[in-house]
Design a binder for these strands. Structure first.
Length: 569
DNA sequence: TTTAGGG
DNA sequence: CCCTAAA
């Protein structure tokens, strides 16, 4: 896997001023996963839209405008594993003449962009992350590449604790890449480069299917992608037909420069997004990291964004200013310093900061020990070193819920500085930013999704099983929501469906021979209780069914001691 | 949204 | 765990 074309650019110009704390739009609790899944799309949708505007009439072969005077880093490129023949991106041969100033990789399309991550300058990492767009198609996918070989100290130093992540929205022809810096953490033990590749192949089948679904659902997204592609095609055609390919076009809406003067073709190589920082347990998987980043990104994109224009590292605020006046014109020496940034909408701090509801968030997935009936058991289910030390390979014991979707935690509620994940959307420039004309009005984002990804597998710990059994003994089967509330209220990742499923497997487990059982062994005692409770409630249900009335809710394991209970004990 | 079950 | 028909 590799990175397609990475564009190199300096970061300096893009530096956003240190951002003050800004309340991040809070996320609602996610109740349904599906909904969540749509987010990314929304985000991409937005990006696509933005890109669409920006790329308006822009052809792939546009001369790359280096955002920041980006020197050719090609030389620095070492064992660039990232390099990839960017198929779709390959630009037709016609490179604008002037582009040579930036990089003359004309011969080699794929090489157009400077290599990338490795080339990146350190500041980038510290700065937050940037998103790069490139016209191309691919699947939405995020891949992390450990491109930073630990051995190459030189490269490593560049990143100094930075993590790079790239996004690649496939349907649309956007390529985004961002690097997330986590300098805040002391124990930044690893540096990773992430690259996106649109190689859909990589996606797991299930993911692909889901993705398809999601994508199909997102008409807008498709539309946007189509638009972009169409535009590209059209542009390309036009260029082909026209001899004056040297003529440059503006990326901007035509609206920006109404003057009939010559046009400037700009290539949006990257967008800088307000810094984002995430926290994630080191024990978390790469997949979790991806999701976390995706969610964090979505969170950022969720808010309204505007496109900021930078010139020589400075933000250009005058929307009415003519490009020519600003120095954005063909052959302008400043052309290469043009940069774009995604900026959060100015206002919004007060309103959108509801996330203050800090209380109810999950304290780790600790399951409360049903106060009433489960006295002594290890209260915190997950984190607890349960009596049964069977933790096999996984160290999930330590990190109970690495998987927990950070996003939810992060934005909606302040995550407790727990070990695991908590995304803390960092401050976005609170500064007021003038909405640039270019910005599309689209914005509907919502949670990100875990885009069809299968949830991470999180085996129930013995403590959880204990809690589940206790709850079921009391509430019965068939009241999973109550069970959830009772025993897993704080375990965000355990849905009532999960509990129901777990119960099902427990019953099965208890039924089969011990040798057949897999996973962390569940104490026989618990299994016995499972069978007893299952039997008991099964009877209760049948009884109730006959009596036609009777609410199961009234029945209680405790109040109406069943033979089962007795026998089990 | 929950339940209940099959996959 | 996922997916969904039913309720």
């Amino acid at each position: 896997m590799v990175l397609k074309r990475r564009l190199s650019y300096g970061s300096r110009g893009y530096y956003l001023p240190p951002i003050p704390d800004i309340p991040k739009p809070t996320k609602k609790k996610r109740t349904a996963r599906k909904k969540v899944m749509q987010n990314p799309l929304a985000a991409f949708d937005m990006l696509a839209t933005v890109a669409g505007n920006l790329l308006n009439d822009l052809d792939t072969d546009v001369v790359p405008v280096k955002l920041e005077g980006a020197p050719n880093y090609n030389s620095s490129l070492k064992k660039e594993p990232l390099e990839e023949p960017l198929d779709q991106l390959k630009t037709p041969k016609m490179e604008s003449p002037d582009q040579n100033s930036t990089n003359q990789s004309t011969a080699e399309p794929s090489d157009l962009s400077p290599k990338t991550l490795t080339d990146k300058q350190p500041d980038l990492c510290t700065n937050g992350y940037e998103v790069q767009f490139a016209a191309k198609q691919g699947q939405t996918d995020i891949d992390l590449v450990r491109s930073i070989s630990s051995e190459s100290s030189s490269e490593f130093s560049l990143y100094s604790g930075g993590v790079g992540i790239a996004l690649d929205p496939n349907p649309s022809s956007l390529e985004t890449r961002l690097t997330v810096n986590r300098d805040d953490d002391e124990n930044t033990s690893w540096c990773t480069d992430a690259v996106v590749n649109k190689s859909s192949k990589r996606m797991k089948k299930s993911c692909v299917d889901k993705l398809k679904k999601v994508i199909s659902r997102s008409k807008k997204y498709d539309a946007a992608a189509k638009v972009i592609n169409d535009r590209k095609r059209k542009c390309y055609a036009q260029q082909m037909s026209q001899k004056n390919r040297f003529k440059r076009r503006t990326l901007f809406h035509c609206s920006s420069n109404s003057s009939p003067n010559s046009q400037v073709r700009l290539r949006i190589k990257s967008f800088k997004v307000p810094e984002i920082s995430i926290e994630i347990a080191e024990s978390a998987s790469i997949g979790t990291l991806k999701r976390t980043v995706m969610e964090a990104l979505a969170a950022v994109l969720e808010g309204e964004l505007t496109v900021g224009v930078m010139l020589e590292g400075k933000k250009v605020r005058e929307n009415s200013r003519r490009l020519r006046e600003a120095g954005i014109f063909c052959d302008s020496p400043l052309l290469d310093t043009v940069g774009f940034a995604l900026e959060p909408e100015p206002v919004q701090s007060p309103l959108k900061a509801p996330h203050t509801s800090s209380d109810s968030f999950d304290n780790r997935d600790v399951v409360e020990p049903l106060a009433s009936d489960m006295p002594a058991t290890p209260s915190s289910l997950e984190p607890v070193p349960v009596p049964v030390p069977t933790t096999p390979v996984k160290s999930h014991v330590t990190d109970p819920d690495p998987v927990l979707s950070p996003i939810e935690v992060s934005s909606a509620e302040q995550a407790v500085p727990q070990i695991s994940q908590a995304i803390i959307p960092l401050p976005v420039p609170a500064v007021k930013i003038e909405p640039l004309a270019v910005v599309p009005a689209v914005r509907k984002t919502r949670q990100v999704d875990t885009l069809g990804q299968r949830r991470m597998r999180r085996p129930f710990s013995v403590a959880e099983v204990e809690a589940l059994v206790a709850a079921v003994e009391k509430l019965g089967t068939g009241r999973w929501r109550d069970v959830k509330i009772r025993a897993f209220e704080t375990a965000k990742h355990r849905t009532y469906v999960d509990l129901k499923d777990k119960w099902k497997t427990l019953v099965h487990t208890a039924t089969i021979a011990p040798q057949q059982r897999r996973g962390e062994p569940v104490p026989q005692e618990l299994l016995d209780r499972v069978l007893a409770a299952q039997s008991y409630w099964s009877h209760q249900h049948s009884k109730l069914a006959k009596s036609s009335i009777g609410e199961p809710g009234l029945v209680d394991y405790d109040s109406s001691p069943s033979p089962v209970k007795i026998t089990s004990l």
